[in-house]
C-alpha cells in the first residue's frame, strides 16, 4: 500500500516537470516583459536595460531554463520580480489563505451536495427530486463571478441600504482593527468574511456533488443486498444511511481529488472579486505582470495540489472500500 503511494508520488515527478517546462516556455516566449511596469517615457532605455540585466533577463532562454531548473531542484523558488522578496516567503501565507477558503467550501460542498443527492435518489422522479434538481442546477449553471457579484450586491450593499440585521463585508479576510478584537470577535469576524466567498466558490460544486450523489445512490439502491436489507425488515433510514450510503460514497470520495483543480480555477475570479489574498489572485497577477519566477512557483503549487488531491482521493478510496485495501 505505502509502496504504491510512493510509486504514485514518484510517478508524478516527470508529470510536474513536464507541465512546468511547458509553462516556462509559454510564459517566457509570450509577448510582454516584467519591466513593462516601468512603462514611463521619463525612464531611459538604459535604465530598463540595467533592470533586465539585474533580473537576469538578458540571457538566452535555454540558459534561463536550466538556471531555473537548477535552483528549483534545490528547492529554491527564486525571487519575485513584482513583490521584491523571496517566493518562499510569499507562498505559505497565500497558500494557507486559499486553503482556508477551499476547506470551508469543500466541507460545504460535500455536506450540502450529499444531503441533496440522497434525498433526490430516494425520491427519484418525484416532485422533490425535480425541484431540487432544478435548484441545484440553477446555481450550478451560474457563472461563479456572476454569483459572487450578486452575493455582494444583495448581502453587502442592499443589506446595508435596507438596514438588515446581518450585513456581510464584501472584501478581504478581516475587518480594519482586527488586531484589537477579542478572541470571540475575531472568530466572528473571520467567519463573516468567509461566508460570501465560500458560498460563491462552493455552491456550484455542491450542485455537482448532488448530481453525482444521486447517480451513485441510485446505482446502489437497486442492488440486491439493499433489497435483501429491506426484505429483512430493516427500517428505511438504516437501509439508506447504513447500507446504501457507505457504498454510494465510494465514487463520491474520489471526486474530492477532482474538485481541487476546479476549486482552484474558481478561486481565480472569486478571490479577485472578494479581494481575498490567496493563490488564485496571486497566479493571475503574476501572469499579468510577467513575474516569471512567481508564475513558475504558483504553477508548481497548483499542479502539486492536484497531484496531492488525487492521492488523497486514492487513500480515502481505500479507507471506504475494503475491497482494494487487500490488494
Amino acid at each position: 500500500m505505502i509502496s504504491y503511494f510512493l510509486r504514485r508520488l514518484l510517478g508524478s515527478i516527470p508529470l510536474l516537470l513536464g507541465i512546468l517546462t511547458l509553462i516556462f516556455f509559454i510564459i517566457n516566449i509570450a509577448p510582454g516583459d516584467p519591466t513593462a511596469r516601468y512603462f514611463n517615457p521619463n525612464i531611459s532605455p538604459e535604465v530598463i536595460a540595467q533592470m533586465r540585466t539585474n533580473l537576469g533577463l538578458d540571457q538566452p532562454i535555454h540558459i534561463r531554463y536550466f538556471k531555473w531548473l537548477g535552483s528549483f531542484a534545490q528547492g529554491d523558488f527564486g525571487y519575485s520580480f513584482g513583490q521584491l522578496r523571496p517566493i518562499s516567503e510569499i507562498l505559505p501565507t497565500v497558500l494557507w489563505n486559499t486553503l482556508q477558503l477551499m476547506i470551508v467550501a469543500v466541507v460545504m460542498i460535500f455536506i450540502l451536495g450529499m444531503l441533496i443527492g440522497i434525498v433526490q435518489a430516494v425520491r427519484q422522479y418525484s416532485v422533490v427530486d425535480n425541484v431540487l434538481t432544478f435548484f441545484a442546477l440553477f446555481f450550478y449553471s451560474m457563472p461563479s463571478f456572476w454569483l459572487a457579484l450578486m452575493l455582494i450586491l444583495i448581502f453587502s450593499l442592499k443589506a446595508s441600504q435596507w438596514g438588515w440585521p446581518i450585513q456581510f463585508p464584501a472584501s478581504q479576510m478581516t475587518s480594519v482593527g482586527y488586531e484589537f478584537f477579542s478572541t470571540g470577535e475575531r472568530i466572528t469576524d473571520r467567519f463573516m468574511h468567509m461566508i460570501l466567498p465560500a458560498l460563491a466558490l462552493g455552491v456550484g460544486g455542491a450542485a455537482g456533488i448532488a448530481r453525482y450523489m444521486r447517480g451513485s445512490m441510485l446505482e446502489v439502491i437497486h442492488q440486491d443486498y439493499i433489497r435483501t436489507a429491506r426484505a429483512k425488515g430493516l427500517s428505511e433510514r438504516i437501509v439508506i444511511f447504513k447500507h446504501a450510503l457507505r457504498n454510494a460514497l465510494i465514487p463520491i470520495v474520489t471526486l474530492l481529488g477532482l474538485y481541487l483543480p476546479i476549486l482552484l480555477s474558481g478561486s481565480v475570479l472569486v478571490e479577485t472579486i472578494f479581494a481575498w489574498p490567496g493563490m488564485g489572485r496571486l497566479i493571475v497577477d503574476a501572469i499579468f505582470q510577467r513575474d516569471y519566477p512567481l508564475v513558475m512557483a504558483t504553477s508548481f503549487i497548483a499542479a502539486g495540489l492536484v497531484v496531492v488531491g488525487n492521492l488523497v482521493a486514492d487513500v480515502l478510496y481505500a479507507v471506504v472500500d475494503p475491497r482494494i485495501r487487500t490488494e
Binding site: S12, L15, L16, I19, I23, I26, I27, A30, P261, I262, L264, S265, G266, V268, L269, I283, V284, I287, V295, S299, A302, A303, V306, V307, N310
Partner: peptide
C-alpha cells in the same frame, strides 16, 4: 488534467 484549466486558458 492536473493543471487548473482556467489558469492555463488565462496564460
Amino acid at each position: 488534467l492536473s493543471f487548473p484549466r482556467v489558469i492555463l486558458l488565462i496564460v
